[in-house]
Design a protein around this nucleic acid. Structure first.
Lengths: 196, 196
DNA sequence: TAAATCTTGGATCGATCGTTCCAAGATATG
DNA sequence: CATATCTTGGAACGATCGATCCAAGATTTA
């Protein structure tokens, strides 16, 4: 067998985390390759060699956001068998994430991306993001309905779509500076309206 | 008195409409001054002389969007004394605007702008946009409550905030390709949950 | 250690970015 | 019509855009 080549001098996942945060906070159009170079310490060669062009990098960062940030939350919601309280907990965590801590005011990378006319590779991630959230909410609401926690006549699928949209709007408005209390009043209104 | 200067050779409002649509559809970061020059037929000199730099142009376009697109709809909602049916009509019109016709898939310029880290001058417009919509929805809901159309115990202010967020999310998701039927199911779920 | 091969730094590409500038054009007053 | 003053077209600015290229560096196998 012939001699083996050199190996990468950096941790791909670690770099992708930094890139994810750049695109998350400022979007793709407002983030230059130079910003990525500066933030990661990598050279252009390494970047293009490892990830391809800017759109590929954007798509990889979006994919990572979905899998590492969104999916765990959504899966926890779907696996939480408590019914309506599971939904309340989900929104509590969302409000906490969006309005306090390290990422306060950043919104959701998926929601932000929608306003950006993203490349097709990213649109696929966004579509998956929406589907997973909706499905998780529907699962929790189905349990709530089985528990008799919902008003009679509530359409679980419609309610799931409505709460999915509510989550998107929370993401957006938190970026615009909406307070946690203001956003929580909307969550309370929605859930109280669904409950018996 | 001394001689008078030349006058503008174009209609400022007309130009601003074209600029508004550029920024609305593609956002600020993805729209170059060259795009504005091409779309309006003006020269750079005329643009900078009339409107100032890009951020000023963006702010002027946002202001125009608020006053000419959003405000008329919101005012109609606020002046519609029918109660809950007024709210339904508002969302019907919103769905029609976002999912069909000339501007289908464009979303709402105000919602799109939030994801862009807009300059302070634009943030002021966004803040006003939110306040006006919320107030109009609250007015309609107050009438609905007076009509006995709402469930007992519904907090009108919280419900108004919730429906405001729903409108934002409709704007966003319509841009991502959500169907009118899907979005309508969310509206129906929200309004049915509030109604007696 | 020599060879093979991938990775890396960094210069560089043409294109486009937002903005400025100036001479030429246009218009209302005197 | 002469004059003053604004507007306009269009060249040009330095900076940055995303992307490419190549020589030098690094690493594993033989």
């Amino acid at each position: 067998m012939s001699a083996m080549p050199d190996v990468k001098h950096f941790d791909e996942a670690e770099v992708l985390t930094a890139v994810e945060q750049l695109f998350w906070r400022r979007g793709s159009a407002a983030t230059g390759i130079q910003d990525v170079v500066t933030a990661t310490g990598l050279s252009r060669s390494s970047l293009y060699n490892a990830f391809g062009g800017k759109d590929d990098l954007y798509a990889a960062a979006a994919r990572r956001y979905l899998e590492h940030r969104s999916r765990p939350m959504f899966d926890r919601l779907a696996a939480d068998g408590r019914g309506l309280i599971a939904v309340r907990s989900f929104f509590d965590e969302l409000l906490r994430l969006r309005c306090s801590g390290e990422y306060a005011g950043w919104g959701c990378m998926m929601a932000n991306a929608i306003a950006e006319t993203p490349p097709e590779s990213v649109r696929a991630v966004l579509s998956e993001h929406h589907a997973v959230l909706r499905k998780s909410l529907a699962a929790a609401l189905t349990i709530a309905q089985g528990n008799g926690e919902l008003r009679s006549g509530v359409d679980v699928q419609g309610a799931a779509e409505m709460l999915t949209l509510l989550a998107y709007a929370i993401n957006l408005r938190s970026r615009a500076g909406a307070t946690r209390a203001q956003l929580r009043s909307a969550v309370t209104a929605a859930l109280d309206a669904l409950a018996v």
